[in-house]
Design a protein around this nucleic acid. Sequence first.
DNA 1: GCGTCATATGAAAAGCTTTGCAGGTAACTG
DNA 2: CAGTTACCTGCAAAGCTTTTCATATGACGC
Lengths: 343, 343
Amino acid sequence: MSEKRVTIYDLAKELGVSASYISKALNSHPSVNAKMIESVRKKAFELNYQSNSQAANLRLGSSKTIGVIVPHIDQRFFSDAIAGIEEICFKNNHSLIICQSHESYSQECKAINTLIHQNVACILISISEETRSPTYLENIQKHHIALVQFDRCTEQLDGFKVSNDNEEAAYNATKKLFENDYKSVAFIGGPDHIAIFKHRKEGFIRAHKEFGLTIPYNFIVEGSLTAEVGFKMASDLLSVKDPPDAFLTVSDNQALGILKVAALKGIKVPEQLGIFGFANEAFANIITPTLSSVNQKSKELGQHAAKIYFDVILRNKGPQLTNYEEIIKSEVIIRESTKKRKD
Amino acid sequence: MSEKRVTIYDLAKELGVSASYISKALNSHPSVNAKMIESVRKKAFELNYQSNSQAANLRLGSSKTIGVIVPHIDQRFFSDAIAGIEEICFKNNHSLIICQSHESYSQECKAINTLIHQNVACILISISEETRSPTYLENIQKHHIALVQFDRCTEQLDGFKVSNDNEEAAYNATKKLFENDYKSVAFIGGPDHIAIFKHRKEGFIRAHKEFGLTIPYNFIVEGSLTAEVGFKMASDLLSVKDPPDAFLTVSDNQALGILKVAALKGIKVPEQLGIFGFANEAFANIITPTLSSVNQKSKELGQHAAKIYFDVILRNKGPQLTNYEEIIKSEVIIRESTKKRKD
DNA sequence: GCGTCATATGAAAAGCTTTGCAGGTAACTG
DNA sequence: CAGTTACCTGCAAAGCTTTTCATATGACGC
């Protein structure tokens, strides 16, 4: 019954021609006339033939497949980005292999190996929290596989990158806080060795410089992007002598933790405390008060990352660009949580 | 430089043995002694050799790859399920190819073809809203590729399935509403040809039967799983002569829409109106009032779907089970939105 | 009738791995 | 020493497709 796979040899036998001819027909090779192509197509459909990409790719030495590595596929930002990537790949007839690093360096390496084994044409990666050395990424390039970093990029390796205007976004968010009469803002950041978090911190600092303000040393802290961390950091900071009257975070979840602290301490948001999130999670405009945040346009970011491969790398097989960076403009969204003044 | 791919022939030449021997060594074949295996491994590492899965799979006729098709990867439920699938695949050294159907039948078919071309060992699918005929799924089986349906299954095709106890969950949720003194519950459902939505409706009806209650004909409506639909349906239903005093929905987003209507009309939730969501989205316990919902354990569901392939299908290559269904127990979570009585 | 050209078709190799079988060597037994 | 065993190692084929190059056929011009 469904015993053996149907191959071009089966088609060839049925039609009384050679296998190589069938192959040409299926690929619409110019040396095969239209009538023949049609009848081969028909036969292929009739016998329920499906080409074997593995054999083709083996022959061709490439694979019409893109690999993606992200820390967690079930985090909104990444699943959105992947949706964008998938869209572009689908349009270009490439399929997608997806791996999670679970924020672990060793799993990231394992994923990279898998993708190399699979002979992917390109790897799109957003590195894990643990990744501090780019040696494994260099390994990708050694295997003549294209590499595009998105969102979380390492500055230790040149190449193709897409990320948000993180510095600018943090700068704008901080400025908005000042413009809304908050006087003393604390920053809850993320792991500093990942460029995007460093950049956000820099934007935060630039805004202070511009307004001629100094930042108390303890008003810049770092941690993971969870509500628990937000809660902990905010409890600490709100217990010091001159506490901040606003927070800028690098994740809406951290912001959520701060809201909880405020509720517990009876601090009114936004009247007594301003809170600025990051990532514009689905809940940001649903919770009370609605949360000011930064919309990172994650889907677009994914699309652009994929497009870099199809539009830039593929077209540019000659002199290799070594540094190509795209910035996706994010959008600062002001909601209730930072409206001290009613305007 | 990075010219040609390193193959077992390169290793063979370097070590002065044959390629087939290298292959055996790398696979720890018993006829190769330990010392040799070690030195081949070392050499492989030294030359940065990465095996070519495509060639191996071509030879082996299988592919250590699982294909997944979901409507939208950026919907919480699916990205969670995929996270679960990925976990199990990773453990079993399989990689994952992910496709989105975008709720479109034609894109679903295209995705299926892609996966067949890729020679995947198994396809895990949650069908699109548009899919009404299982012919394309049968095609998968014809290509001796294993098939597991999860969450959204069609009743028109027997086979391996995993889903929630949808009927039971809806029944329990409805019962909870009655127990909390709501007298007249309306149901906002989803597309009826997808079994899970039908089952939820049946659970809703069973609860009424059990309590000896009749359901006004217009209290059962259907639509997509969006806030807009929830808003529209609820506005309509709350304007009739004897409006319902509670809603059971099939999505938290629909519930969100109802909350909006209530706010607009000045109806107090939960005092005057109970609202029950479904899916336990991240925002359910964050919004005000917090939303009663059904936790579908989506990640577990994904894990189980993948495990069916590894634990059941692979182990059971003899007499084919034709109907194997697993039910993941979901959890009904009561929050503020349905607490008419304080207890 | 012969050289030329266009068109249609096929043979064979290559891409890389796995595996059954056979061949070879060394050690060991009686 | 002949025969057996155990252990290593390699040959060759298979898995399916693509592509180069060669051949065959017929038509055409002169």
